[in-house]
Design a protein around this nucleic acid. Structure first.
Length: 344
DNA sequence: AATTGCTCCAACCGCGTCCAA
DNA sequence: CTTGGACGCGGTTGGAGCAAT
């Protein structure tokens, strides 16, 4: 079994990287860039092969990597993308900023796959409605008391929509044929969020313009979109661009607010928005008491269960692109129908 | 306290593709 | 056209860390 030619020219170290090696690699690449990977170890003073350096940099040392566990949004996205793309981890990871293909692959193999198989083994699931209610013990955000959920709006065309912003994330998936034949995640900002339909017009205006700091009411789609596409721009409900300075200010304050409020719970920002949607006392109703609140301290894996339960059982286990095909083998573009109040 | 079993993930391996010579 | 080096990707492995016994 041959090692790569670049690894044969000199005796190379293998196995775990030491902090000293990491430092050497970081110093070299931040100063000179990686250039040709095969020359990096020599120039950086490392007894490694170029391939190992590349892998270490891409999977671990890159400054733009997001560390920590996957958020429910990310998990939902991975599951959905996997049902479409199969084991094309690099393609999946492209839609998860700060995540590597290796990370996504490990997450899938260690967490999701087993749960999918487990669900597959229990074909006699309760009704989807029941399973959703069972699997969505979400912690409500008491600040968002003016969001009123309509339970009937969580079901649409025989499809269970997650009662969270992640459902909109999934609905927002489309297949962009004209561009690159690659999956594009868009329309997130304008995807329907049925849960928000009953916000009063004035609150709604504020949600869209993202300036309702007093109520800490932020558009979940905005947060999602910002996480998925940090460089993207937004329009308000009138189709006008959001003032970048306001956008920056609001988003920054959101992050700061999150950092304060999350001191006890290490969750990604997006996860908090899921908690905006109460479901515990039945959809749309806050929990009744403290013990119920405690019961609602859902961890992320429960959320993954919920996501899995809401998917067709076979799709996420398949490595084919079947979920993009309708029964007559035509590509389904999952274009949501937008409520008029959600913009163009 | 020692041992065993399990999980998770960093790292490795082999293969395919691209491209320049 | 062929060859070989570089790179990227997906599958697999090894071991650190943790829990159970």
């Amino acid at each position: 079994m041959g090692h790569h030619s670049c690894c044969n020219k000199q005796k190379v170290k293998r196995g775990l990287w030491s902090p000293e090696e990491d430092e050497k690699l970081i110093n070299y690449i931040t100063t000179y860039g990686h250039g040709c990977w095969s020359s990096v170890p020599k120039l950086a003073g490392l007894q490694r092969c170029g391939k190992s350096c590349r892998l270490r940099w891409i999977n671990y040392l890159r400054p733009d990597l997001k560390r920590g566990s996957f958020s429910p949004q990310e998990a939902a996205l991975i599951i959905e993308l996997h049902s479409i793309l199969g084991n094309r981890w690099a393609q999946i990871a492209k839609h998860l900023p700060g995540r590597t293909d290796n990370e996504v692959k490990n997450f899938w193999n260690s967490s999701v796959k087993k749960k999918l198989l487990s669900h597959h083994d229990h074909l006699l699931l309760p009704s989807l409605t029941t399973s959703v209610e069972t699997f969505f013990p979400l912690t409500p955000n008491p600040k968002n008391t003016n969001i009123i959920l309509n339970p009937h709006l969580n079901h649409h065309q025989n499809q269970i929509y997650l009662p969270t912003s992640s459902s909109s994330l999934i609905q927002g998936l489309q297949f962009d044929h004209e561009a690159s034949q690659d999956l594009k995640i868009h329309n997130l900002l304008h995807a329907p969020n049925p849960n928000l339909q009953e916000i009063s017009p004035s609150s709604y205006e504020d949600t869209w313009s993202l300036v309702n700091q007093e109520n800490n009411l932020l558009c979940p789609h905005y947060i999602d979109e910002k996480f998925m596409n940090p460089g993207s721009t937004f329009q308000n409900h009138e189709g006008q661009p959001v003032d970048p300075s306001i956008e920056q200010k609001i988003f920054q304050s959101t992050i700061e607010d999150y950092n304060v409020s999350s001191s006890q719970e290490q969750e990604p920002l997006v996860a908090r928005n899921i908690h905006s949607y109460p479901s515990s006392g039945g959809f749309g109703y806050p929990p009744q008491d403290q013990s119920q609140m405690a019961d609602l301290a859902a961890n992320h894996m429960e959320f993954i269960d919920a996501i899995i339960s809401s998917f067709p059982l076979s799709s996420s286990l398949s490595s084919s692109s079947s979920s993009l095909l309708s029964s007559n083998n035509q590509v389904v573009t999952n274009t949501p129908s937008f409520p008029s109040c959600w913009g163009p």
